[in-house]
Nucleic acid binder design. Sequence first.
DNA 1: CGGCCATTTGAAGGAAGTCAAGCGTAGTGG
DNA 2: CCACTACGCTTGACTTCCTTCAAATGGCCG
Lengths: 241, 241
Amino acid sequence: MIRVQQASNSLPPAALRLSRLAPLSGEELMAVVAAIDRSSQTPARRELLSEGRKIAEPRMIVSGWAARVRLLADGRRQLLSFLLPGDLVGMCRQPEPLAVSTVVAVTALTSCAAPSAGKFPQLADAYAISEALEEARLLSQIARLGRMNAQERIGDLLLELHERLSLCGLADETGFDLPLTQELLADALGLTSVHVNRVVQTMRRANDLEWRGRRLHLPNPAELARKIGRAPIRVTSASHA
Amino acid sequence: MIRVQQASNSLPPAALRLSRLAPLSGEELMAVVAAIDRSSQTPARRELLSEGRKIAEPRMIVSGWAARVRLLADGRRQLLSFLLPGDLVGMCRQPEPLAVSTVVAVTALTSCAAPSAGKFPQLADAYAISEALEEARLLSQIARLGRMNAQERIGDLLLELHERLSLCGLADETGFDLPLTQELLADALGLTSVHVNRVVQTMRRANDLEWRGRRLHLPNPAELARKIGRAPIRVTSASHA
DNA sequence: CGGCCATTTGAAGGAAGTCAAGCGTAGTGG
DNA sequence: CCACTACGCTTGACTTCCTTCAAATGGCCG
């Protein structure tokens, strides 16, 4: 047991996340780690996928943040979701798939070809669970934008990011590295950066969060979750997920 | 050619839609029609799926409208998407799947077990394309709620519904049967029914739409789409979709 | 030091929400 | 057949949340 945890802790975040979604065999884990070893780099702001264009190959985020984006005709921008280490980009089952959204690197990014799950049943499960989680997050995003006020939106999204980063070992109990500007956060939450700024300051004064530079500190995530009425996401009844 | 169209026109809407997503073989079409023949009824307002509970079996809407719903802790309600004839409910690939959202019947509903695509490659394609379209619509819904004003939201959603119903033969060039109250529309659009009412009236005065009882009439869908900057959704480069 | 970018602050305006009442219509039951 | 009810639509007055525009501040890096 102890040895397993030590092994887990030495895994790259993306592999750690997959193995937590579905327990991977040694062989599968090796395939994942091998894929990660053949990663490539993408500078910040570069597009990984372009809406309406063909998808070349499914990839996995290894490190850094990306975001799915929609642009309206007049330039308004909406971030649809954030993609974190272990998340998949461009996974589709239909023939000749077109990207349904642009994907851009938010930070400098490392990504790799998503290892094929053809011969790996547990990995296929992990992919399926990962996709179900992504869908659940899109639904949460809809409820967030449709029915929450600015303070709830900000708290809810930060808690979601905290949960997700915890799953790949990139967050501690009370905080994580948040490489976003207030403007990007506003574009994700359907707000203006000016209003995000004001509300964040209110939340700072209420001691709901500290956020200086790239470090976000949540003094009491459970209390914040209670305050804004957030429930975590589940997509399987299996205990490990 | 004429005979094919006649055959298409005699198909039930749900089967027509699937066959338009991917051209089904005669055998596949028969399996779909057979499944539709074993439909069951659900009264309006009844839940088909309950968030967080196990999914029994993937089903397909045969007739009537359903909606995916999220409820916030304090009773606020957000409709996530509408499910129309030919749409799938509870399609998942992971083991022990839990519903990520409640699904309720908006109208009295007919649904059937989704025919297994195991031996039917074209049907599997149709399912894959259907899921990709559903994801694309969720993304559109996010952009709608995040970055559009009330008038754009209403117009955009009505145009989406028009396109979708056209695909299963349930709309004509300039309108369709809209079995929603202004309150339901408001819950889908992140607005209040009072505000939906006011905006619908200004749109009526601008001759953007007529809506009396259950009949929605769009005098000029293309012009409305241009006015609000809407582009239709595509997920394959194949010409038939 | 200077330039750039993100954050912060202020003042004013507008889009949408809230509360409450009135209206129309379809269905129901005496 | 007509009151009675229920539900959805409509309207008005007022409030709130968020945006807009503009300018100032602060940190970081060349």
